[in-house]
Design a protein around this nucleic acid. Structure first.
Lengths: 238, 238
DNA sequence: CGGCAGTTTGATGTTACTCAATTTAAGTGG
DNA sequence: CCACTTAAATTGAGTAACATCAAACTGCCG
C-alpha cells in the first residue's frame, strides 16, 4: 500500500528519525519515487499496529495522528508506556531488535511509515544524522520513562494526572503552535487511567475536581488549561 | 586515583560495555599500562557517585559491588529507577549526554571505572562491539523500565515485591553461580520500598507474609527462596 | 552497657477501588 | 426530526489496600 503523502508533517524536524532518513522537507519523496526499503500504511483508532512478540523487519515511524505503546497484562488490563506523536519512532528498541516486546495501538486515525531495519543499519555508519536521531530517541525514551516511574511510585492521583497533562502539553507544544492554552488531546479517560495506574472512575473524579477548581477542562478532544501555574504546582516533578 | 584491579569481574562479558572497550579478560589492563582516557575510583555504601544535573565528561561503568540509579524528589523522597550490578553501564544515556538527569548511589562497597565520552565516540565508528554493547544497554534499560512501569501501574504490593525479587534474581544469576536458591541481596527494605513505590513499613509486612508462607526469607543480605513456583505465580508479569 | 540503624508490630486514617446506577453525547435508522 | 442504541463520563455508597503514627524489638558496634 503506497500513497502519496509526505512522511512527516511536524514542523520541528531536527531530530526526527524520518527526516534523517529522508532528508529535508523540500526533498520529500512521493509515490513515484519511493524507495523499496520504505513502506506506508494507515490505521484507524483502536487498531493494533504491532502486537507483543511480533517479529518485523521494519522500523516504524508515526507520520500523522496519535498512537500509544503499551504492555498487555495477563488479566487483560494494559499499561500504556508512552504516547506517540507525529515524527516519533515507535521505540528506539525497534531499531536494534527484530522482536518487539510491547504493542502499539492507534489512538486517532494515523499514518505510519516503515523503514527496513537493514537499511537503517547500512546508513548508520555513513550518516551521522541517523545515529544522532537514534541516540536522541533513546535518551528521550529513557528519560520520560524514568519520570513516569517517579510519578507512579511516589505521587497521588491528582499529581500523576497533572504530570501526564504537563508532559503531553510540552510535547504537543514542540510539534505545533498552541493558542489560548487549548491543546489537542485525543485521549479518553480510559487511556489516562491506563497510563498513570488508576481506574477510569477515579480519573473522572480527579478531572472533575480540576474542573471545579477552574484549573482545566477536558472535553471533546481538547484540553483547555485555565490555571497553568496551579497545574504546575500540582504536577511538576522537580 | 588509580589502582590495580581488573575492570570487570563478571563471568559473562559478551555485552559488557567495559569488555568491549578493554578487550577480553586476558588482555586486562592494570595500573602501569592504564590509558589516559580511563580512570578508576572506589566508593562506600551510601556514597553518591553522580548527582542530578551534574556534568561529567566520563561515562561510568560499575566494576564491582551494587549501586542504584534514582530520582531525587522535591520532598526528599526518591524513586529508585534501576539497580546496577557489576559490568553495568550507569545508563546508556550517559554515553550521549554530558548532563546526567538522575543520580547514582553506592549500595555496597563498589569500584567504578570512568571512560571518556570522547574516547567512546571515537571508537564507536571503528569498533562494532562498542555500538553493539551500547545498543544492548539501551534495549535492556528500556525493557526493564517498561516492566517496572507495568508493575507500579497495575499490581498489588505483594506482586510488585515479588516482581522485583524475580527481576533481580534473574540478573544475579546471569552474573554469578547460585546454589540452593540463595541470592546475594544487599538491599535494605528501604530500598525495596523506594523502588516499588511502597512504605518501608508495608514492605516489612509483605516480606513477613512471604516468610510465614515459607515462600522466601530475606535477612543479612541473603535472599533465600524456598518456593520459587509460588513466587513466580505471584510476581511474574506475563 | 548504651546507642544506633534496621525491622517488626499495632492502632488508626486516608486514598483509591469496586460495584452499581445515572447522565451525557454521538451516532443511526426510520 | 425523532426514537433508539451505544460509548463515555459522572455520581454515590461501601470497601479494601496501603499510609501514617508510634512503640517495641533486634542485632551490631563502640
Amino acid at each position: 500500500m503506497q500513497e502519496s503523502w509526505p512522511c512527516v508533517t511536524c514542523p520541528l524536524r531536527e531530530f526526527d528519525f524520518c527526516a534523517a532518513l529522508l532528508g529535508k522537507p523540500s526533498e520529500e519523496l512521493h509515490f513515484h519515487q519511493q524507495p523499496s526499503w520504505q513502506s506506508y500504511r494507515a490505521a484507524r483508532p483502536g487498531e493494533n499496529i504491532i502486537i507483543r512478540n511480533q517479529i518485523s523487519e521494519n522500523v516504524f515511524v508515526l507520520c500523522s495522528g496519535w498512537a500509544f505503546r503499551f504492555f498487555q497484562l495477563p488479566d487483560g488490563r494494559r499499561q500504556i508506556l508512552r504516547f506517540l506523536l507525529p515524527g516519533d519512532l515507535f521505540s528506539a528498541v525497534m531499531a536494534f531488535e527484530e522482536r518487539f516486546y510491547s504493542s502499539v495501538q492507534a489512538l486517532t486515525d494515523i499514518r505510519i511509515s516503515g523503514v527496513r531495519r537493514a537499511e537503517i543499519h547500512a546508513r548508520l555508519a555513513v550518516n551521522p544524522a541517523i545515529s544522532k536521531a537514534l541516540s536522541k530517541s533513546c535518551v528521550v525514551e529513557i528519560g520520560d520513562s524514568d519520570q513516569l516511574l517517579a510519578a507512579l511510585g511516589h505521587r497521588s492521583a491528582e499529581e500523576r494526572i497533572a504530570y501526564l497533562f504537563l508532559h503531553l502539553m510540552k510535547r504537543i507544544t514542540i510539534k505545533s503552535v498552541i493558542r489560548d492554552q487549548r491543546y489537542p488531546f485525543p485521549l479518553l479517560q480510559q487511556h489516562i487511567a491506563e497510563t498513570v495506574g488508576l481506574t477510569p472512575v477515579h480519573v473522572s473524579r480527579v478531572i472533575g475536581l480540576f474542573r471545579d477548581r477552574n484549573i482545566l477542562d477536558l472535553s471533546e478532544g481538547i484540553l483547555q488549561v485555565n490555571n497553568l501555574p496551579e497545574l504546575e504546582r500540582i504536577g511538576a516533578l522537580t
